[in-house]
Design a protein around this nucleic acid. Structure first.
Lengths: 259, 259
DNA sequence: TAGAATAGCTACTGGTGAGTATGGTCCACG
DNA sequence: CGTGGACCATACTCACCAGTAGCTATTCTA
């Protein structure tokens, strides 16, 4: 049962996002007065764990390391999480939640499936390039208890199935070139997941830019295209109406940064 | 200095490839008479390690596990390798060697760059789906000493640069759609690397089939193409090629024209 | 202000696993 | 035949680390 965090009703004011983004400031020593917002501190523990896992790997990170990064001691960490495994799980969930939301949102829209798929891939790339990307990508069965592993597998499968569905719908509505949805979904997810292996912040590109570059690659393919009108050119009967491939999504100024 | 294996000249007969492929037979208990071919036993240790890492992960595999799989004890393993890290390194090299060879071979050929790239990707996919694929993909800096890490990084970079060069050449000779070589290489390698995460043998597809399916995805792209000649449409063709994944060094018939 | 809850520390346990010290056995070769 | 080396096992050492016991200090509440 992973979500057994106390969550005791949050009685106080929401505490205006102290030290929100990527500063390594810990809510303990950061300001000497103890802000006793449990959730803020708990989040800080999760984030510190994510950074440590990201840098040294899960097995090479001890809870003493994480505690030291927060300038506290190990029992303090255990005051907020029950064990190391849960720490990894929470990092995973923090990373994958955005993708799941994007997949769900894609199902409730009316745009051509390729545009909806691109939106999902964009969120996907951003999530993988986030500070939780490593944990999301690398959290493996072997390091987790069976229930946690099952949770993670279910979430991953949800995303995979969502992508496959978008591919099928795109083939149906003519916005996506016919292909094997399963293999194509593997290829897309694999390319995006791998971002977590080579991407380091402060390297110039943001996650969004990388996602855009990848989408450009996936869309065009390696084989040259007769560069007539860069619009759809459906090659298969668009399956009744509703196939307005006219891109209601933004003006398609996808420069794709090709040099 | 990773390659300090004794390699004592191999004075005896080559010993006709005892228990070559994926049988877990160990050269120790397999035949009661002790064949003292050091290389064969050493290879068996490497392969056993690869299988164990593949199944349980590097950190969750103890050298006692590997020894038990070979029905020997831990000091015997240490008689053939110097430490656990070297074991991982050897598995990595065993996996990546085929790709490096393919990249080098691609440079000495005259075919259009896209065809040469496809050949490289085919070898790449096969290597990742091999029993050393996991080690090749997952061997990380954090688990290795600085020199080993540098070695690995150099080999990976060699392959990456080779793919980028093929992409540039393909854009030049018109066989590849204009794109950002760096990002495209990342996308290709990522998709292929990720095979190691989901591929399990006995799942129906061989590494070659997966590689072919991925190549079809990369070639066409998601955006529909005007259906001029039939050409593409490689979706789920059973293909039934007689390439049994054993037979490592066969004639390889690299037909650049599909079907 | 007493008592309870919160939040954190020092100092420990227990288990695991990498790597080794030491010695035994079998074979090749002089 | 006996000696040295190749090969392998028993039985250890040692370090690291997840997790805990029990204490202290601060803050909230009645």
């Amino acid at each position: 049962m992973p979500s057994n965090r106390p969550r005791a009703g949050s009685p106080q004011a929401p505490s205006p996002a102290a030290a929100r983004d990527d500063s390594p400031a810990s809510p303990w020593r950061a300001s000497r007065e103890r802000l006793r917002d449990r959730e803020v501190k708990r989040d800080a523990v999760i984030r510190a764990a994510a950074r440590a896992f990201n840098r040294k790997g899960y097995h090479n990170t001890s809870l003493d390391d994480i505690a030291a990064a927060l300038e506290v001691t190990k029992p303090t960490v255990y005051y907020y999480v029950s064990n190391k495994e849960q720490l990894l799980f929470e990092c995973f969930v923090a990373g994958i939640e955005g993708i799941r939301a994007a997949v769900r949102e894609a199902r409730s829209q009316a745009a051509p499936a390729r545009e909806r798929l691109k939106a999902v891939l964009r969120h996907y790339g951003e999530a993988v390039a986030s500070e939780f990307g490593w944990c999301m990508v690398r959290a493996e069965d072997q390091d987790l208890s069976p229930d946690m592993s099952a949770h993670i597998k279910a979430m991953k499968s949800e995303i995979d199935q969502g992508i496959r569905r978008l591919l099928r719908e795109g083939i149906q509505d003519g916005s996506i070139h016919p292909c094997d949805p399963k293999m194509t979904a593997f290829a897309l997810a694999g390319a995006l997941n791998w971002i977590a292996h080579w991407y380091r912040e402060s390297q110039g590109m943001t996650g969004t830019q990388i996602a855009e570059a990848f989408i450009a690659v996936f869309e065009s393919g390696l084989r040259p295209r007769p560069e007539i009108s860069n619009e759809v050119q459906t090659c298969r009967k668009p399956k009744s109406s509703s196939s307005r491939p006219g891109a209601p999504r933004s003006a398609r100024s996808r420069g794709s940064s090709r040099r």
